[in-house]
């Protein structure tokens, strides 16, 4: 389910079926690495759309958590921890973060939610068809990851 009224209406009616919430982590920087941070955010947004489409009955796809790349590690981690606390308090069994930013990889063990890190691909240099097939591939991997996590929790 997307973060739109119609979907959330459905969520409120069938809460017992929705046990998963996904938060895309989107870095923002206007410095030297502006291009890189855009590419990461773009890639993750594309993936999250597909992921939501496949599993929309079981998860909520939150609007992304965007953060300044320049912030300190402590600040970023404690900000995200706050989200985490709220999400678990609201009865989601599975909390997932979806990101391309390798920063989170380094602090993964400080998070309780599952971190799904995928290196972003230079999509802008690919032709349309190739791009679609690459994306499809990534989505497939992502889907099977989710299935695994759900299964192992059952």
């Amino acid at each position: 389910m997307k973060w739109v009224s119609q979907d959330i209406e459905m969520y409120l009616k069938s809460k017992e079926y929705v046990d998963t919430i996904v938060l895309p982590l989107l870095p923002v920087s206007l410095g030297n690495d502006v291009k890189q941070s855009v590419a990461m955010s773009e890639f993750i947004s594309l993936l999250s759309i597909q992921l939501e489409r496949q599993f929309r009955g079981r998860l909520i796809m939150l609007p992304g958590f965007s953060y300044l790349k320049g912030n300190s590690e402590d600040k970023l981690v404690s900000d995200l921890k706050e989200w985490e606390k709220e999400l678990y308090a609201k009865d989601f069994t599975h909390v997932f973060y979806l990101t391309s930013d390798s920063f989170w990889k380094a602090v993964e063990n400080k998070l309780d939610g599952g971190l799904i890190w995928l290196p972003s691909l230079p999509l802008e240099h690919m032709d349309e068809n190739y791009r679609t097939s690459i994306l499809e591939d990534q989505v497939k991997q992502l889907l099977s990851l989710f299935l695994q996590k759900w299964q192992s929790a059952e």
Binding site: M10, S14, Y17, R53, Q54, F55, R56, G57, R58, L147, W150
Partner: peptide, 26 residues
């Protein structure tokens, strides 16, 4: 599109239920 809550179903993907469309969500 699954008629329960709209996930995408797959053909023959559940080993316990061969020759069925299976919805991984519930």
């Amino acid at each position: 599109v699954c008629k329960h809550l709209g996930c995408v179903v797959d053909w023959n993907s559940d080993k316990a239920n061969q020759n069925h469309f299976y919805c991984p969500c519930h």
